[in-house]
């Protein structure tokens, strides 16, 4: 565990907590893409299947349980409790365009052709693009509430911090995992445009609004 990995995890944790609290306290999920949330639930479940096979640490297990739990709580709030506030019309990204290629890629490019390994690889590939329905929704409506921007910033920073963690581990521990690194770079790059807007607008107290 190094400082980059820890900050990455905390940033990730902060993101999922912000999201649940935002929906819970405002009693609304307006502006949030249910499709991205479904993809994240698939990511967590397929990646953390090792909860039942391998024990790494209490920290590791707790975080996995929290991510799966928060993800399902978010889906419950969006599709059941506060269903009426869910903005279907703007959440029109076709997730099969992300699911099909990531399934195929995981079957073709993986470290080992076993069920757990292919599912883990699939979850890494899917996570790298899972935010696209959300970013698509923001670009469609042309704006995002500041709390949604904070969520996106924390969620985007997490994989960026993991990239620093992987650079560190490559030198300090001789450890690297190419599949995760390449996907992590893709994932972080997808947020670049958003990061720019977040820093130039939201941090200056303005609403995140895309130029017309």
């Amino acid at each position: 565990m190094n400082i980059f990995r820890l900050s990455g995890d905390l940033s990730h944790l902060l993101a999922v907590i912000i999201l649940v609290l935002k929906i819970w306290t405002t009693r609304s999920c307006a502006g949030i893409s249910g499709k991205s949330q479904i993809l994240f639930a698939i990511v967590y479940v397929t990646r953390y299947l090792d909860l039942v096979t391998t024990f790494v640490s209490v920290y590791n297990t707790s975080m996995k349980v929290i991510f799966i739990g928060a993800s399902f709580a978010t889906i419950y709030l969006m599709y059941s409790k506060f269903k009426a506030t869910y903005d279907h019309n703007h959440d029109s990204f076709r997730i099969e365009f992300l699911l099909a290629p990531t399934v195929i890629l995981a079957l073709l490019i993986n470290q080992k052709f076993t069920v757990l390994e292919v599912l883990w690889t699939f979850s890494i590939y899917l996570e790298s693009v899972a935010i696209l329905p959300q970013l698509f929704m923001v670009s469609k409506t042309g704006e995002a509430e500041s709390i949604t921007s904070h969520y996106l910033f924390a969620l985007g920073s997490y994989r960026g911090l993991y990239l620093l963690n992987w650079i560190y581990r490559y030198y300090a521990e001789d450890h690297y995992e190419l599949i995760a690194i390449v996907s992590g770079i893709v994932q972080t790059v997808l947020y670049c445009d958003f990061f720019y807007l977040y820093i130039t607008k939201v941090l200056k107290g303005k609403k995140l609004q895309l130029p017309a």
């Binding site: 990995r5 995890d9 990730h12 090792d50 391998t54 790494v56 640490s57 590791n60 975080m63 996995k64 991510f67 470290q111 080992k112 390994e117 883990w120 993991y162 963690n165 521990e173 001789d174 450890h175 690297y176 995992e177 190419l178 995760a180």
Partner: peptide
Amino acid sequence: KNTIIVKDEL
């Protein structure tokens, strides 16, 4: 380089 799969990350 060590490329053994150790899934100790989240």
